[in-house]
Amino acid sequence: MAEVLVLVDHVDGQVKKVALELLTAARRIGEPAAVVVGEATDGIKAKLAEYGAEKVYTAPAELDDYVVAPKAELLATLATDRSAAAVLLSATAENKEIAGRTAVKLGSGVLTDVVDITADVVAEHSVFGGAVVTHAKVRTGVPVVAVRPNAIAAEAAPGAAVEEAVSVELSDSAKAARVTERVKQEQGSRPELTEAAVVVSGGRGVGGDDFSVVENLADSLGGAVGASRAAVDSGWYPNAFQVGQTGRTVSPNLYIALGISGAIQHRAGMQTSKTIVAVNKDPEAPLLEISDFAVVGDLHKVAPQLTEEINKRK
């Protein structure tokens, strides 16, 4: 069976959940081969084995000293050398870029923001803000596919996870854009936004930089906190938490929107959430049209009552 390369997202020695989802998808197509850039800790390798990685290719962390191009060189080289059946990545902004460059190198095609994928690499997309569902495939070469986190449920299945270190001789042009500094904003102890099963987001309706009404509800559900652009632009919550077209795309089991009108750019980032709940004082807010359950009222009354009720029922 041909190998299916999976670029593994990991942070602080932990595999991100989306990598396990990708391994699950890869098993439909062929033999999953994980690609880890940076240190593959025992913890990482164990997780990859648990979710079916037959191989674990490891590459030096230096690839991350430059923007995108080195990882594309790595993936393209591996895909060619191992005659891979497909290359799968998570559909983050950076990984979509890696996917694009990898496909150019392979002379193949790229599909991004995929929500499902079949054994013969036909990919499902949800486009135009969720209004249209398309199926698409790559016609030439090794398909490169970026899959949305939380779209495919991860299922465990043992794999051999045979480790193999790979070295890449980076071209000069791959080293053209150097990362000279990394600035991280505090994430706190909440789950990562795109990985979380529950996301509670606050918008302009929160009314100020005291986001505790949103945070408390998120914490009662073990969820992540998100924000609309209006809230981020007002300086009430950090940029990294913006949900939407130009923020993060989330697809949790439960999305709760507090004081968010539901502009198309916001919906673009959360429309594929499985269940949507909204609290808004305006019965005409567009978000109510796509909500499964909505309360028309003041979020500062409704959300604390909900939080209290959840904590009571635990």
Binding site: A131, V132, H135, A136, L288, A294, V296, G297, V302
Partner: peptide, 21 residues
């Protein structure tokens, strides 16, 4: 390099419940 195999309007979300607080 890519081909759309088919497309269709997404099935409409079942109308949700809206209640007044």
């Amino acid at each position: 390099t890519t081909e759309v195999v088919d497309f269709a309007a997404a099935p409409p979300r079942a109308a949700g419940t809206v209640v007044k607080d």
